[in-house]
Simulated assay, not measured.
Amino acid sequence: MSPTIHLAQQPEADELLGRSPLAVLVGMLLDQQVPMEWAFSGPYTIAQRMGSDDLDAARIASYDPDAFAELLKQKPAVHRYPGSMAKRVQQLCQYLVDNYDGDVSAIWRDVATGDELLARLKALPGFGEQKAKIFLALLGKQFEVQPKGWREAAGAYGEKGSYRSAADITGPESLAKVRAYKQEAKRAAKAADET
Results as ranks from 00 to 15, higher is better:
Arg19Trp: 12
Ser20Gln: 14
Leu22Ser: 07
Leu22Glu: 06
Leu22Asp: 00
Met28Arg: 06
Asp31His: 06
Met36Trp: 03
Phe40Asp: 00
Gly42Gln: 06
Gly42Pro: 00
Thr45Met: 15
Ala47Ile: 05
Asp56Met: 09
Ala58Leu: 10
Ala58His: 06
Ile60Ala: 00
Ala61Glu: 02
Pro65Asp: 14
Ala67Trp: 03
Phe68Ala: 04
Leu71Pro: 01
Lys73Ile: 15
Lys73Ser: 13
Gln74Val: 12
Lys75Gly: 08
Pro76Asn: 11
Pro76Glu: 13
Ala77Lys: 12
Val78Thr: 11
His79Thr: 12
His79Lys: 03
His79Leu: 07
Arg80Pro: 03
Tyr81Trp: 14
Pro82Gly: 02
Ala86Tyr: 03
Gln91Glu: 09
Tyr95Ser: 11
Tyr95Val: 01
Tyr95Asn: 10
Val97Gly: 08
Asn99His: 15
Gly102Pro: 01
Gly102Trp: 03
Asp103Trp: 07
Ile107Pro: 00
Arg109Leu: 12
Asp110Ile: 14
Asp110Arg: 10
Val111Ala: 07
Ala112Gly: 13
Gly114Glu: 00
Asp115Ile: 08
Glu116Gln: 10
Glu116Ser: 06
Leu118Glu: 09
Ala119Arg: 06
Arg120Gln: 11
Ala123Asp: 14
Pro125His: 11
Gly126Thr: 08
Gly128Gln: 15
Gly128Arg: 12
Glu129Tyr: 09
Glu129Met: 14
Gln130Ile: 15
Gln130Pro: 01
Ala132Asn: 09
Phe135Gly: 04
Ala137Cys: 10
Leu138Arg: 02
Gly140Pro: 02
Val145Cys: 02
Gln146Ala: 10
Gln146Val: 10
Lys148Ile: 14
Lys148Phe: 10
Gly149Asn: 02
Arg151Gly: 12
